[in-house]
Design a protein around this nucleic acid. Structure first.
Lengths: 335, 335
DNA sequence: TCTTGACGTGCAACCGGTTGCATAGAATAG
DNA sequence: CTATTCTATGCAACCGGTTGCACGTCAAGA
C-alpha cells in the first residue's frame, strides 16, 4: 500500500533518525545492539524516540530477522478444566521472555489441529502442543519446520513434558488396598489420549502389585455427563471403588452414585485424576494431583530454551504425581 | 540477516515466478486478485506454486498491507470457568474468518493488561477485551489505535457486548419471593467488575419490587475459598437465601454451609450466576444462566465485521439471561 | 611522524510480499 | 486502415526494520 502518512501514522525509524540527525541504521542499533554505539548517542536516540512516541514495528523486525517473538499453544479443549491452569502458566512463562502466544483450540480433532498449526507456522518461532491428537507422522512434520515441545504425548526425538501418573496411581491403589478394597474399576477416558493409556497401564500394574481385581469401564469421553452415565456399569462389576480418568469424570460418577442412592464414600469410594476441582466437590474428592500448571511452565521454558540455543537433544521431562487424600475414600462396606 | 538460502528454505514468490516464467507481481496477483489475470495463467501459477510447496508469507504480507489477520483476546483469568467457553467460542468465530488469536491473561491486573496490549498492538487488527480491568481512559487509548470490542464493560463510544443479568436476577428474586423468602443476601464479587456492579444493582432493584430485605456481603474475590469463608457473615444477617456473584462463589458457599451443618436447600437456599458449573454441584445449583460462549461469539463477530467495513458506530449488544432452577432453592425453614 | 587498529557511524542490499503506473498486444470503433 | 479502448502483465517503489561492509577519526605503538 502506497500511502501518504496521515497525521496519526505511527512514527518510524527514519522519523527518529531525522530528528536525531543520524542514519536509520544507527537508530536500529540503538535498540538492538546498543553496545555497538557511543553511550551518549544511544541515550540521545532513545530519548528522542520516546519523545516522539516511536515503537519498533514487530512485523518489520520479524520479516528481516526471521524471528517472530511468538509461540503457538494448541490444546484439545479449553473448556476442560485441566487446561486453563496449564495455559495460564505457559502464558506467563512466555510473557516473561517477551513472547506473545497464539492460542489454538483443536476441539479434539486432529484435522483442526493441523489446520491451526498451518495457520500459525508462518508467524511463530515454536510450537507447544498439549495432548496432541495428531499422528506421529504429522507431529514430526510440524516439528521439522519449527522447534516443537509436547505435553503429555511421548514421541521419540521430540522434546516433551510428561505428567507421569504412575507414582500417583500407585499411591492411590496402595491407599485403596490399605482401606481393604479388593475389587476396583478404572473408568477410562479418550482412547487417543496418551494420559489415558498411561493411567490405565498404571492401574493394571498397581492392581497386580497389590493383588486387587480391576475391571476397565469405558466412559465415551471425559465429561461430567459420561461419568454420571457410566455408574450402573461400574456398580455391575461388583467393585467397591473406582479410579477415574480425570476429576470431571469422577465428579460425574459421584453424582451418578448419589442418584442411585449409593453414598460416597461409605458405600463406594471414588478417586479422580488431575486435581483440577480442588476441594470443590462435596465430599471433597480424593485425587491424583498432576499440577498441569507445572507442566505448562516446564514445557514453555523448555521451548524458549530451545529457541535461544538450538541445543535440541531428546529432552524428556517427567513430572511426578502424588495422591491427595480427601473425603471420597473410605473402607468398603461390610456385607 | 543476509543468508544464502539453504536447501530447506521455504520457496518464495520469485521461485514460483521463475518456475512459471512470469514476474513476481503476477504471482502475487494470482493469489490476491486472480480476477485481474488470465484464467489459465492463474491456474498454471497456482499449480506450480503448490507443486514446489510455496506458501505465502503471512508476515511479509502483513508488512506491506498493514493487515495482520490476527486479533488479540485478553481475559482477566483463564482459570475462572466463566472464561474458557467464551474463549473457545471467540476462537472458533475468528477461525472461520481465517484469523489467528493471541491470548492474554491479565491476571486481574490492569498493568499486566496494558502491557500485553502494547505487545500485541503491533501485530493485530483488532482487540477483544473481556471484563477489562483498565480505566476508561486507557481503554479509549487502545481503542484509538485499533478497532476494539468489549465484553462486560460498558464504555460509551466503544462497541460492546454486555451480559445483562437484570432479567435473570429479577427472575431469581421472583423465585425466592414465591418460595416465601423475606430476607436475602447478595454476595458480591470483585469491586472493579462491571458485572458485579450490574448484578448488585439488579438485586437491589428486584428486592425493592418484591419487598424483600437485602444485605450485601462482600467476598474479597470471586473464588471457591472466599465463598466458603464468608458463610458465617451470611448467616449472621439472618437471611434464608443468598444470591452469589458467580457460580464458583456459590459453590464455596454451599460447602461452607455444609461445614456448619446447615443443609442446602432445606435450611438455606443458594443461587449462583453464570451457569458454568452445569449441574455439577450436589445438589445441583440453581443459577442465572449467562451463556458466556454466546458473548464470545457475538463479540468476535462484531469485531470482525468492524474490521471489514469500518462501520464503527456505537454498538451495544446486550444478551439476556434467565434463571435455571435446579436443586439449591426451596422454601425457607419454618421457625 | 607514519602505520595500525579500534571504534563509531553510514550506505545500501535484503527480508517477501503488494500495488500504482506504464506498456504491449488484442479487440473494437470509426 | 488508423484511432481508441481494454486486458494482461511487468517494472519498480514501498512497507519498516536488520546487517555486512566500507569509511573516517583518533589514539597508541614503532
Amino acid at each position: 500500500m502506497i500511502q501518504g502518512k496521515g497525521q496519526n501514522a505511527r512514527p518510524t525509524m527514519v522519523d527518529v533518525a531525522n530528528a536525531a540527525g543520524v542514519s536509520k541504521s544507527t537508530v536500529s542499533r540503538a535498540f538492538s545492539q546498543p553496545e555497538m554505539l557511543g553511550t551518549e548517542t544511544v541515550s540521545r536516540i532513545l530519548e528522542i524516540a520516546s519523545s516522539i512516541g516511536y515503537v519498533p514495528n514487530h512485523t518489520a523486525r520479524a520479516l528481516s530477522t526471521g524471528r517472530y517473538g511468538n509461540v503457538a499453544l494448541v490444546v484439545p479443549d479449553v473448556t476442560n478444566p485441566f487446561f486453563p491452569p496449564l495455559i495460564r502458566a505457559a502464558q506467563m512463562s512466555a510473557d516473561l521472555a517477551d513472547y506473545c502466544v497464539f492460542l489454538g483450540n483443536s476441539d479434539e480433532s486432529w484435522r483442526q489441529e493441523d489446520k491451526l498449526l498451518d495457520r500459525f507456522v508462518g508467524q511463530v518461532d515454536g510450537l507447544l502442543l498439549v495432548a496432541s491428537r495428531l499422528s506421529e507422522e504429522r507431529i514430526h512434520g510440524h516439528a521439522a519446520r519449527k522447534p516443537t515441545v509436547l505435553i503429555n504425548r511421548d514421541v521419540r526425538g521430540i522434546p516433551r513434558v510428561l505428567i507421569d501418573s504412575g507414582q500417583g496411581v500407585q499411591e492411590a491403589i496402595a491407599h485403596l488396598a490399605a482401606l481393604g478394597h479388593k475389587r476396583i474399576v478404572y473408568v477410562s477416558g479418550p482412547s487417543t489420549s496418551w494420559s489415558n493409556q498411561q493411567r490405565r497401564n498404571a492401574v493394571r500394574q498397581g492392581a497386580r502389585d497389590f493383588h486387587l481385581h480391576v475391571d476397565i469401564v469405558a466412559a465415551r469421553v471425559a465429561s461430567y455427563e459420561s461419568g454420571r452415565a457410566v455408574v450402573p456399569t461400574i456398580l455391575a462389576t461388583g467393585a467397591s471403588a473406582a479410579i477415574a480418568f480425570d476429576d470431571v469424570t469422577a465428579h460425574g460418577i459421584m453424582t451418578g452414585m448419589a442418584d442411585l442412592g449409593v453414598s460416597v464414600p461409605s458405600s463406594f469410594s471414588v478417586i479422580g485424576c488431575d486435581d483440577v476441582l480442588g476441594a470443590a466437590t462435596y465430599p471433597s474428592l480424593t485425587t491424583v494431583s498432576t499440577r498441569s500448571d507445572e507442566a505448562g511452565h516446564a514445557a514453555m521454558s523448555l521451548l524458549l530454551d530451545l529457541l535461544n540455543s538450538r541445543s535440541v537433544g531428546d529432552a524428556r521431562i517427567t513430572l511426578d504425581t502424588h495422591l491427595v487424600v480427601r473425603g471420597t475414600t473410605s473402607a468398603p462396606p461390610r456385607r
